[in-house]
Structure formats: C-alpha cells, structure tokens
C-alpha cells in the first residue's frame, strides 16, 4: 500500500462486492453476466488531491465501481465513505446529494444535444438552484479552463469528440466537486485530443481536486507516472505510486 500518511483519506471503498444475478439484469449485456462476480471485495482508499488511475482489461469491473460510487448501481456488499460519510446509506431519493459532491466524466460525454455548450455546463449549477449571476460568472471560468470559451454558443453536434469531452469536464467541475471521477474519458476520442484531456485533468489536480480515472489506455498511464491501481477478475492485484500500466 502507498505511503500517504501526510494526506487525508477522501474516498474509501470497503470490501465492495458486486455479483450480477438475474434480477439485477437490466439489458441483454447484463443477462450475459448472470451470477457473475464482477467486483470481489474491493477495498481501496483515495487521498485528497491525488491523481489515481484505475486500470484493467475490459470487463475488469472499473466502470462498475464508478457506477456504484455514484449510486447508479447498488453493490451486493460493502461500504463506501466519501469524506467520512457513508455514500450507500443515503436514501435513494437523496442520491443527488452524493452526485453533487462527485464530478463525473463519462466515456460517451453525456451532453444535452438540444443545449449549447454554455447551457450544458450551466445545468450542473442550475440543478442546485444557483442564481443566474453566479452561473454567468462560473461557467465562463470553467470553459476558459478547458479552452472552450470561444465555443460557448455552439451545440454539441458542432464539436469534435475531444471538445465534447472538455465540455463534460467543465460541467463536472462547475459545482466544485470534492472529487472528479473520469470513466474512460479518452475512450472515444483520438490520441491527440486524449493528450489535451489529460493536460486538463492534471491542471484539475493542481487546483486541489482529487482525480480518479479509469482507463485501459496503456500509453496514457505509462506517460503520466501517477498512482496506478490495477483490477483483474474483480480484485485489486496491484496498487503502486508512479506506476506503469503493467506493473
């Protein structure tokens, strides 16, 4: 385990297990996993201000862990604590409270096609009923941070894949989350755009936000030299500071 006595524990996964049973199956892909253990007792601590990669082959359980964290799915067993408070004990009707503390960036961007770049970012503030003056101040700042202020009036269909992902990052940062979780953020964009995304995520960490990123992109992981947590068969098999993809 990494030596992080100086840092504060921000996110704790304790013995997270996820077994897909028939009643859990929500689509045909899930049905293929009937009775399969996707996560098997994952225990993991993420520290404040760090950048950590969660790596593993497709189907290793990386995205499932992210979904459980944001309560899109429920674990079969285990606990999750965000800054000391249980995430899983929060009633379903209050789950939005958790999601406001965790900024999430998805592989498929999840932008609103009928809204402009500005409006897509503003929605993260609108849902917490932020006043319009505050929205008008914060949104340009985060768009500037991701280098898209000049495209604030564009619609998603007018953007490249990399630009869409930058908008998604801006939206995730708009309400100043405690932690940013990026689930395969470079999975659907070209390598050059992917590099730009990683530059932005490094800037995010420098601003003090913790970043947890799932990926199976070896080049990115090897280049960045950050903490690398490797999952295989639903278990953590290695956890190294300044690690490489195959360490």
């Amino acid at each position: 385990m990494p030596k992080t006595e100086q840092k504060t524990k921000q996110l704790e996964f304790k013995n997270i297990t996820k077994v897909y049973m028939p009643e859990d199956a929500s689509d045909e892909l899930d049905m293929a996993f009937q009775g399969i253990t996707v996560l098997d007792g994952i225990s993991l601590d993420i520290y404040q201000g760090e950048f950590a990669f969660l790596v593993g082959e497709s189907g290793a359980g990386k995205s499932t862990l992210v979904k459980i964290l944001i309560r899109e799915e429920e674990p079969t067993d285990g606990e999750i604590y965000l800054e000391g408070e249980s995430v899983l004990d929060i009633p379903k009707e209050m789950v939005h409270v958790v999601r406001r503390k965790i900024g999430v960036v998805f592989q498929d961007f999840k932008l609103l096609d009928s809204r402009t770049v500005f409006e897509n970012v503003a929605i993260a503030l609108a849902v917490v009923k932020a006043p319009q003056e505050e929205i008008n101040e914060i949104v340009p700042n985060v768009l500037n941070m991701v280098g898209l202020l000049d495209k604030k009036d564009n619609y998603p269909y007018q953007l490249s894949g990399g630009e869409k992902q930058r908008v998604a990052i801006a939206r995730a940062l708009a309400h100043e989350p405690d932690i940013l979780v990026a689930d395969e953020p470079t999975g659907m964009i070209d390598p050059k755009a992917g590099e730009r995304i990683m530059e932005i995520l490094e800037d995010v960490v420098e601003y003090g936000t913790t970043v947890l990123m799932t990926t199976h992109d070896q080049d990115i992981v090897n280049r960045m030299k950050k903490r690398v947590i490797r999952i295989h068969g639903g278990k953590i098999i290695s956890d190294k500071q300044e690690g490489g993809y195959n360490d």
């Binding site: 932008l111 929605i123 849902v127």
Partner: peptide, 15 residues
C-alpha cells in the same frame, strides 16, 4: 436521455 443526464449531474427528483 436528457432526464438521465440531469440525474447523473445531481438533479433532485423534484427537479
């Protein structure tokens, strides 16, 4: 899809 995204970015049920 829009409703799903709103939920994922932290919109409450009432919203």
């Amino acid at each position: 899809t829009e409703l799903e995204i709103l939920k994922l970015v932290g919109a409450s049920n009432d919203y």
